[in-house]
Design a binder for these strands. Sequence first.
DNA 1: GAGTGGTCTAGACCACAGA
DNA 2: CTGTGGTCTAGACCACTCT
Lengths: 250, 250
Amino acid sequence: MSDANAPNTDIGLDAGPLYRQIKTQIVRRIANGVWSPGELLPSEFRLADEFGVSQGTVRKALDALASDSVVVRRQGKGTFVAQHTNQRALFHFFHLVGDDGSRELPETHRVLACRQRPASSDEAHCLNLPVSAKVIEIERIRTLAGSPAIIERITVPARLFAGLDATPATDLPNELYRLYETDYGITVHRAVENLRPISAGRRDVSLLGIRTGRPMLEIQRTALTVAGTPVERRISRCDMRRHSYISEIV
Amino acid sequence: MSDANAPNTDIGLDAGPLYRQIKTQIVRRIANGVWSPGELLPSEFRLADEFGVSQGTVRKALDALASDSVVVRRQGKGTFVAQHTNQRALFHFFHLVGDDGSRELPETHRVLACRQRPASSDEAHCLNLPVSAKVIEIERIRTLAGSPAIIERITVPARLFAGLDATPATDLPNELYRLYETDYGITVHRAVENLRPISAGRRDVSLLGIRTGRPMLEIQRTALTVAGTPVERRISRCDMRRHSYISEIV
DNA sequence: GAGTGGTCTAGACCACAGA
DNA sequence: CTGTGGTCTAGACCACTCT
């Protein structure tokens, strides 16, 4: 890239087509905060100049990033680093739909706890932390269609979210990923969910008003940054009497 | 396309960029059986000639089709219509994973019934059939890690699958989508699954050896062709004591 | 060696946003 | 009006497969 006739040295061990190297470089800059969510990237021509390649090659990298939802392209305006919006939360990170097919984010939530503590072994494993590491735990109840329906236990590494446990519960938004992004510079890019059915226990009964032993859905989620670093573990117990989990397969 | 300087007439009301029109044309031919699963498409240059556009435009259409898994491209060989393989079944159409993270298709199944009957209202709705339409129902038990774990009721429109109900149970493969493709010319392209937790009933107890009332996962799937026509309704009751459902979110 | 898709380039024109 | 991304073209060269 710096010299068209020599192998590259400014990319970790080089290799692969140019557009892929450029894609990697751009991802790296976004991950390092050189460009922040919502920010306008340089135009294709400027990037092409900087990387020493043709505009078409930069375009191919940017198109790939757009299809990964790492950037958003807007004709006439430019290319922007993707940002968490309610739209994205709804269609990508929230999979519960009403029995009538309605797709709505929870309107309200009630925070039960927000404290710092050592990671459990599950959390240490999923978040790739040493066993002694501290995490911040948020426990809350989310409301669907007017009724409390989800008990959520969210844990994040304390090192990355310093001070989050001191946040007043009223300052915690329902869509936490926007908070992670704006206040801690951490963007959740993708997640893996493991689902299994469970029986309502005493706590579910008292918090959600469901009957003992009724089937519920447990969602275990691990959320990752664009660099693949796990940044959140979230376990949700969901009352599915009026909702189902939707999964689209291609 | 037929004339570079005149608007198109051979595409339903035209409109949109050329590569998209070409993509639509190719999808249409595949849907109509002009090109069958596994078949080699003409080369980019031949298609470009035929459509009267440049090779680059055809390439863009084919790349888009490849990323939709409608075609598969192989350097040095050509572009092929995508085919159902065990790989695709495993990574796209089967979402149950073992507690140890193992991802395996069911090895065996036992067919309980394969008969023709009128569609239920759910089936008529999901398959977009008139209420009086006939469907063919297959009921079977699938085995995971050596134990019967899934009770599946599959229904397909009798009109599209004439004779399927006369198939000996031993001729039904575990991966039905390959049968649909080879014997009935119907390719499942995508599906929508709705999940909800349920309690094990009498039938689950006797067929799967699970205890009454234990939580299970019900998966309601509607499978569609590349043209968007629903071709299968499938309801699976899953014993999740040793498995979870995995969902990857981007 | 011939044919295929994969990469890269260079340049034209269009559609859209905003000063 | 300028600058942006979106489309389309034409041609070069590379990597791979098969004969």
